[in-house]
Structure formats: structure tokens, C-alpha cells
Design a protein around this nucleic acid. Structure first.
Lengths: 232, 232
DNA sequence: GCCGCTAAGTTATCGCTGCTAACTTAGCGG
DNA sequence: CCGCTAAGTTAGCAGCGATAACTTAGCGGC
């Protein structure tokens, strides 16, 4: 046994790119079972692919680049899951909810991938291209388009959809990441935990718009009391 | 130079605990400057304290235990910051907002500590004592008591404050962790980013209660249209 | 037919990490 | 002043990311 029994055959001349894809796929699989990216070593990935560790560096500058490639793949999957859940829904407000639920469900079902994609500090901090990358991401674009649709049908006050998109994303990310980081808390199933948060975030934004956009706590309390009075 | 020039003197017989506190403090300081806990090595901590690496293990079982001690200290600071911001506020709904803003401000001002405390998978997964630890945490208890106060004054529907506390915590954690993880996005300052999210979450919960607790998207849209009609 | 060139991958190694075994030293109680 | 133990030390292991230097496979040109 002078070498790993599952040693892979050398790729034929033109197809070095093939190994690259295998490396990304193997890394993604290993990350799915492991807590953090530091627990997945280059040597482990190399073994899984059937290659020696330095070969990884023929396709990725360093470990961060490899992780980043996996994150890109994960974001693409996330967008696909959201679109699959939302494209059958007509009304933009209901579609917003479907997107949000799909987002949280993807996060909870791929906790390590989601953590990697959203909770790790990005390598290059403050880089403007990073900002463009997030805002141009397919999932984000789809979400913001739906927010604009909600404005068009009068659910939200017309205007720039970006701030509201960020706010609703915060709500979805908040419940998703807490469910992942503290799974032992009494969340219940995904829907019963995430749906109230998502609905409250959207309804709260719409109601705040009704009250002038940014009501003070005093105004809010007074309005709630008035509503209860007219209903009770 | 046979040894580190800043070698610390051996602690006197009874006071081995003193080094423990110094280690925690030094680790916290090092973590404040560094991206993740893996970048802070035992050797680095030992150097900062003026001691050799194995001495750390006389006071902590392993690195995870050391990090956990830091996390406990961070949670205590977070609670202190929240209480300091909220104890002057009378009305529970306004106090809720003050707590939330203090929470987000603490997170953004201590990003690495906050990330460590909330975004890392806990070592022992599924342990029931973990759940008790979070729910018994001082900050959580203060927050939930204020939610109960909001029920008492009629802002929220009376009932178990735990689900609503978790929902509002999700909102606060969502905006805090996104501002930390994606600082290059156009958030603006802490207040202008966090306040709308926090207010919308609370107002959305209260409004959903008005509509029966869990309105469907259709009911919500219809109610919003009716509200706009009576106001417009 | 074979020779050079390069893509594809190897072996060996460096400095670093968490962690441990085995040893040393300081200081209090009897 | 002697034993005992708390409070450290030195030396070293296995594994990590990463790199330098080497080998091998296969295609194009002559």
C-alpha cells in the first residue's frame, strides 16, 4: 500500500477544470457534516477527491478561495430554492412570504452552508465589489423585485425598495440564524417559528408606513389603543 | 534573552485564580482585534499574559472552555449595556425599543465578541442545560420581562411572553448580525438601520394580534387596503 | 519517430497550531 | 527542615496551511 487506494487517474491534458469541480463538490459535502470551515482541512478534501494536498493549490489560490467557491454555489442553490417556492405564487405579498419561508427552510436544512455563506466575515473587508456581489446576487434581486411589486400594489409606500428589502432580509436572517445557532430553543417546526417573524416584519413595515413611516413609541401605543377601542 | 522579557512572576500559593482572570481578559482583548476564534492561538494568549502555553491548561480544560468563559463575560456586558440603556425608560413598549437599540449597538461596537457569542455552534449540541443557560441569561430575562410588561398594558395580546420574546430577539439579532457580517452594505448609522427593523417587528406583532394573531396574506392585504381607504 | 514543452500531480518540508507528558520550583503545614 | 502540592516549565507529538522542487503524462512540430 504505497498510495491511497482510491487514487484518481490523472486528468487528460485539456480537462484540468474537471478536478476543480470535483474539489468544490467534495468540499461542500465535507462542510455539510462539519461545524466550521476550519474543521475541513485541505488534506481531508484532497483525500476525498483522491489526490494529494498540493494539487488543490493548482486550482485555488488558497483555502479561502476554495471556501468562497463553495459559498457561491450555495448562494446559487438558495436562489433556486426560493424561486422554486415562489414562482407559483401570484400576489407579491404572498410571494414575499413564500420567498422568506423558502429562505429559512434552506438555511435550516443546510445549516453549515448557510452559516458559511452569511456568518463568516468576508475576506476582503470594505471592498466595494463585495457590496455589488451581494446586491447583485440572484436571490437578493428576486427578493427586491418582489418588494417593488408590493409597492406597486399598495402594500408598501412607493419608493426605493432597497431599505425595505434589507429590513425584511434582516428578519428572515435573524430567525434562520438563531434557529441554527440555538437549535435547542423551543422554536417548533420551521413554519411555526419563521412565519410569525416574517409576517410580523412585513406587516409591521406596512403598518408603520400607514402611521407616517417612522412612528414614535408613543404614537404607536396610542394608535394600537385606538384600534382596540374601535374593534372591542 | 533566555526567556520572554515580560515573564510574569509566579502567583503566590493561594491565588491561582488570579491568572485565570488575566487569561480571560487577555483572550477577550485579542478576540476583539481578530476575525475568528481560530486566529487567536493559545500561544498568543500565553504571550500576552506572560506565561507559557501549557499553563493555560491548568485553568481551562481546552481552548473551547477558554472561549466559553469569554462568551459568558461578553453576555454579562451585553446585559449591563441593555439595562443601562433601558432602566430610565418608563413605558414597556419604549423600553423594548431602548433594549433593542442597545442590543444592536453593543453588537456593532463589539462585532467579534458578538459573533462569538451568538454565531458559533455551541460545543455541546442539544444539551438541555444549554437551553436553560440562554433562557436564564440576564439579558434574555430582562427582555422577556419587558415583553410581559407590554402585554400588561395592552400592546401585545396577553399570553406566554416566550414566543414573542424569541420573535423580537430574532429581529434584533438579524439586523445586528447582518450589519456585522456585511458592513459594506448601505445600512447608514446604527439607529437608522436598526430602529425601523425593531419598531416594525414590535408593531407587526401587535398589529397581527389585532387581526387575530396569524392573519393570512390575503387578510393582511385586505386590511391594509381598508386602512388606506379610511385614511386616504 | 521522437523531442521539447507544458499541464497535472507528486514528495518533502517549513512554521504554525492545540495539546500532553514529564519535569522543576516555590512556599506552606507539621 | 522536610514532605507535599500548587504553579509553573521544557520538550515534543500529530495535524494544519502552504510552498519549493521534482516527476510524469500527453500533444504539436519536425
Amino acid at each position: 500500500m504505497t498510495q491511497t487506494p482510491t487514487r484518481r487517474k490523472r486528468a487528460s491534458r485539456g480537462s484540468g477544470e474537471q478536478l476543480r469541480d470535483e474539489i468544490v463538490a467534495a468540499t461542500k459535502d465535507l462542510l455539510a457534516e462539519s461545524a466550521n470551515s476550519d474543521a475541513v482541512s485541505i488534506r481531508l478534501v484532497a483525500d476525498a477527491v483522491g489526490v494529494t494536498p498540493p494539487s488543490i493549490y493548482l486550482h485555488f489560490a488558497d483555502k479561502d478561495a476554495l471556501i468562497e467557491a463553495v459559498v457561491s454555489a450555495v448562494f446559487a442553490e438558495l436562489d433556486a430554492a426560493m424561486v422554486a417556492a415562489g414562482d407559483a405564487v401570484e400576489h407579491p405579498f404572498a410571494k414575499l412570504r413564500a420567498y422568506g419561508l423558502a429562505y429559512v427552510r434552506f438555511a435550516v436544512e443546510h445549516p453549515e452552508h448557510y452559516r458559511l455563506a452569511t456568518m463568516e466575515r468576508c475576506a476582503v473587508e470594505g471592498s466595494p465589489s463585495e457590496m455589488d456581489m451581494v446586491l447583485a446576487d440572484a436571490a437578493f434581486v428576486h427578493f427586491m423585485a418582489t418588494v417593488r411589486g408590493c409597492m406597486d400594489v399598495g402594500v408598501f409606500e412607493p419608493g426605493d425598495p432597497l431599505p425595505i428589502t434589507l429590513q425584511l432580509w434582516s428578519a428572515a436572517h435573524g430567525i434562520a440564524s438563531l434557529m441554527i445557532a440555538k437549535p435547542y430553543l423551543p422554536w417548533g417546526d420551521i413554519e411555526s417559528a419563521a412565519d410569525p417573524v416574517l409576517c410580523a416584519a412585513a406587516l409591521g413595515r406596512a403598518t408603520a408606513d400607514l402611521l407616517g413611516g417612522h412612528p414614535t413609541p408613543e404614537e404607536t401605543v396610542a394608535w394600537l389603543a385606538a384600534q382596540r377601542a374601535t374593534r372591542g
